[in-house]
Design a protein around this nucleic acid. Sequence first.
DNA 1: GATGACATGTAAACTGTTACATGATTTG
DNA 2: CAAATCATGTAACAGTTTACATGTCATC
Lengths: 192, 192
Amino acid sequence: MSLRNILLGLLRSPRSGYDVKKEFDGSLRNFWKAELSQIYPALQKLEREGLLSSEQQDSDVGPKRVVYELTDDGHEELKQWIAAGPVVGTERITFLAQTYFLAELDDPAARIAFMKKLRDYYAGFLAFLKEREQDWASDYSDFPNDLPDDEFYPHLTLDCGIHRVSATLDWCNKTIGRLENRRDHEPSAKSS
Amino acid sequence: MSLRNILLGLLRSPRSGYDVKKEFDGSLRNFWKAELSQIYPALQKLEREGLLSSEQQDSDVGPKRVVYELTDDGHEELKQWIAAGPVVGTERITFLAQTYFLAELDDPAARIAFMKKLRDYYAGFLAFLKEREQDWASDYSDFPNDLPDDEFYPHLTLDCGIHRVSATLDWCNKTIGRLENRRDHEPSAKSS
DNA sequence: GATGACATGTAAACTGTTACATGATTTG
DNA sequence: CAAATCATGTAACAGTTTACATGTCATC
């Protein structure tokens, strides 16, 4: 139900499916991903339902584009989705499911290696998010307070990403320490 | 692909579908959810594939139960899933998608109310996680280091939840402050 | 003329949600 | 005997992934 609403939000200004995909890979990457093969049919369906309208356009740099834009009905549905309040409790964190069963790796070194891979991933992701924020900030004197609405709210999501990813990274480092400690001081604490 | 592996992990010791559901609502609630209508067919499929075996058992407190348990093949698949390294980059955070488009609520008070609802949810969730941790800790003298493997790794996931939820809550509070500031000092910073 | 970015799609398989259907056993 | 909990499932629909298919245009 949410991809649908995200598409409506992005199409407040006219965009093609291909453009939308670039936004998923850029600013939305922090909290949602979608493939072109999911985006194109979803756009068609929203148009059939009257929430989007489309128009063929020539491109300067490539083949013809199908450009969609939000209708009034679409705008109404978008507003209602947000007005209904925050949707929470639907998160799936696969690496935590793996961590839950980490005892399955019976070599302590393998468990530590698992957690270090995770740390490296999140360290890279945090660097990516912080760099985006610095580039953004450089255009303003009282960032983020002087951002216009159409950048202020997207920036909030980047800021949340930085908070959450930092916290996850802290946990990875703390956990690596605990795993090393466990390897060194309690060589066989199995119970199953 | 992950529900499948989580079921294998839980079924290292024998459980019914109903038991499994209770674990999703308890210890796994922090990172995964699943409905009975998804669990039962998934268990049947895993049995057909030879990764689980099942047995009918009488219950002390209700009707007959179908109790599943991991086979050697199932155990192998579980191990490989974890050995392949952490699965990351698949998270979907719906409330951030809504936040991205929060300007759609055109009353500043409604935007603040949205964020306060989110804060209240996360405050409650954090309390729930911390309470679970305290109950857990009370059984040990050097918690969490003296936990046996079958509790140590699950505890790591609870700890990660606490880190991430705390960070999210901090962001909510910071954001509420920013929204109030924006309401008071920049009454019409619209750009679209 | 090969490569890569631009651009749009379909098909099949898989995963997940909501609603429905059934019935046993325990507790008040 | 009513309600709650235990217990297992199916059906219809919605959402997602992976693989396949097609073709344009610009740059090297």
